[in-house]
Design a protein around this nucleic acid. Structure first.
Lengths: 205, 205, 205, 205
DNA sequence: CATGAATGAGTTTTCATTCAT
DNA sequence: TATGAATGAAAACTCATTCAT
């Protein structure tokens, strides 16, 4: 093993540490975001959640914007849209599966969804945020397509079109997010969403 | 006409002027809000839109909160939810009417809807805004109830329940708001929303 | 009676009204001053206490300074230092009388004294206030001289000099003012001051 | 010496620098206070005295209140009440010593006394300031007690009570503060106070 | 006489950012 | 790497003052 290789390996491990720190800071930012909203995601507020100084945050992220970008990357990569994975034979039971998995994923990722909705809203007014909102939307589209194809492979044809159904499902998510933030019990929220999904998703004719 | 009466009338007209200015300032705030989002609705930003100083805005509104409250009052009183007024005989043509009027109202009030969605979002994180969001929600509920009753009087029973339909309709509005803000042509946006509404609203069996 | 005379008389009565208003406003200012301190004597705070607008205050007083000047004039003319009026034969009973009258005057005018102490303090830092503080001090000196002469006519010679005694008496007033403002019962405050005065004022040898 | 120890020592010295700056800023505030009064002790005015921006002052002091608190701490800890330290055998010469030390301390700390009197005055109207005024008053009480005990150990009994004497002494200080601020020569002021003290303090029978 | 519209400078505070160490 | 000193712009709000009516 050469000096160089050792140096390389050292750098590699330093890089890992670096990446780890970055990730930790972004996670702290996500917490702040989901609890207090985008407007409170300030470098200082985030740093306050960590054992680091606000100067540190600027060391790892060139700007507040870069911090937000990292948050978005985490959301995008975290499979918050996973739905309908698993094998079932008919449409009604597939819808059941979809409802179950959407609810399960919601339960786990509701804070990220809350951020997603907040970001989507803010991105209307801050053009700089649009690329981030779009990134997430793309991930969402991929997940939706998988479900649509599955439904179609089971012989279902969407009328009204699938897009409208997907929009409705997402509206249910948004509503659930709001309900929980306003203090409603999580289990009640999820149960309601599950019921609503079953009424809205395709059923065998 | 007596002195007193004249004085009274003078005060009345002065009050009107005062109320007019207040209203104008609130409208300026609404413009700022709809273009740049709630976070940019600062007293100075609003004043900058007018020919007045920021001290002026504080002269008319005791606080930023009072300014926001006036904005909300304007939205609440501006009939942005009006839909389905007019007489028609059957369900399909009533849905047509509803779609038409929703679209027409949207065309006129889309900036206010944009604010409404922003407010609803922010109110999740700023408890002080909740009363405002609720005020508007109440006005919305009243409008929705009128439509539901009309449908029911025409013999329609909602299954899935009306609430889900209403949520879907509002989601279509939100989507249209976003689409326009992202640069899509207003006419296209409205046409799409109209098509979607027709697919989603009740039809004669 | 000529037009002119009537006009003159009308002006006279208008002047009286004018003076009356000025006085009322200054009294309102004195209330604000004694309750909230000099820093809160703003044109608006004073106007708020009256049925007039803050513009009015500026109509009657060219500036905030002129308002303060009028306040001072009122204090100066209001005999807050009256003490020792009345006939008694020996020194001990004169001291008794002085203590009684000082306490009585304090009870009536304690708010004005509070203002006087506040003014004396502020005048150290705002040179513009010094003339006002001096005006009051002069009135005080006159009252003190009367008492001193009376003591001397009864055969008392001051050693330590009268000035030190007077300073001590005023310190007792200041202390009483503070005690009352901090919530102590007025009667207790006055009783304590009376006791202290008796211990401090001259007694027959 | 280990890394850790060095690091500790580095931190210690950094802390010292930080505390030093804080102290310097508070001293600047004390200067502003003694020259222009409490009402002018604004963050900006204080910053203006230094080479720093007003943002800096907020960096070191979370709020204006914290700045005031630090000022008070400095006053409290600066022994402005020290009097009568030293050994003497009889009452007259102890009074001499007390007068000397009070005057010496006054010469050094007259600006702090000025602030103390201003604070005591303001605290009547701003309840938030009372804790600060009380803090200083406590330090004063301790100093007074020491003197009283010393007099008593020399066989002196106070009648009128010691409290009245102490009030008179403090009134002399206040008067001296005012006299100097109004332009009188410091030496004259101190000489007068010294004379007055000797006339007022206990003497051998 | 009297009002209140309007201004501009002032207050405290927060924050993104830069930079020396 | 990491800190925290330092800045300057912006926020909400207050107030003395001027002035048209």
């Amino acid at each position: 093993m050469t000096q160089l290789a050792r140096a390389g390996s050292a750098n590699r491990s330093e890089d890992d540490v670096h990446e780890g720190r970055r990730h930790d800071l972004a996670v702290a930012a996500l917490h702040t975001w989901s609890e207090y909203g985008y407007s409170q995601v300030s470098v200082r507020n985030v740093a306050r959640r960590t054992r680091f100084s606000h100067g540190m945050v600027h060391y790892y992220f060139q700007s507040k914007d870069a911090l937000v970008a990292e948050c978005v990357r985490i959301i995008r990569d975290s499979q918050i849209f996973s739905a309908g994975e698993g094998k079932v034979g008919d449409i009604t039971s597939y819808s059941q599966l979809v409802a179950d998995t959407i609810c399960e994923s919601f339960r786990k990722n509701r804070r990220l969804h809350r951020i997603r909705f907040d970001l989507r809203n803010q991105s209307q007014f801050e053009p700089a945020l649009r690329v981030y909102a779009d990134e997430i939307e793309e991930a969402y589209t991929a997940a939706k397509d998988a479900v649509r194809e599955r439904y179609e492979s089971l012989g279902w044809t969407f009328d009204p079109p699938f897009e409208l159904l997907a929009a409705q499902v997402d509206a249910l998510r948004e509503r659930a997010v709001r309900a929980e933030l306003l203090g409603e019990d999580l289990e009640d929220v999820v149960r309601t969403m599950h019921d609503d999904l079953l009424q809205v998703l395709p059923k065998n004719p």
